[in-house]
Amino acid sequence: MNKRKRQRVAAVLIIIPFLVYFSVPLYNITNPAIGGLPFFYWFQILMLPITAILLFKAAKLIDG
């Protein structure tokens, strides 16, 4: 990939967590719950390591 293309893919990777967290109705539900914890809570927590992976990939793409 050339530099410009890498930057464009990186931008998409950075934007994904924004889009997911912006879609509040998507995760503002109780079920499926895990160990009594509603989906609303555990889904947002689960998205944190996923966000880190996406951002890390983006950083790698930008800096090579």
């Binding site: 390591p49 880190a52 951002l55 890390f56 950083a59 800096d63």
Partner: peptide, 10 residues
């Protein structure tokens, strides 16, 4: 800096 920021969601 970029790398440190990217893994801070952990």
């Amino acid at each position: 800096l970029r790398k440190s920021l990217s893994v801070l969601p952990i």
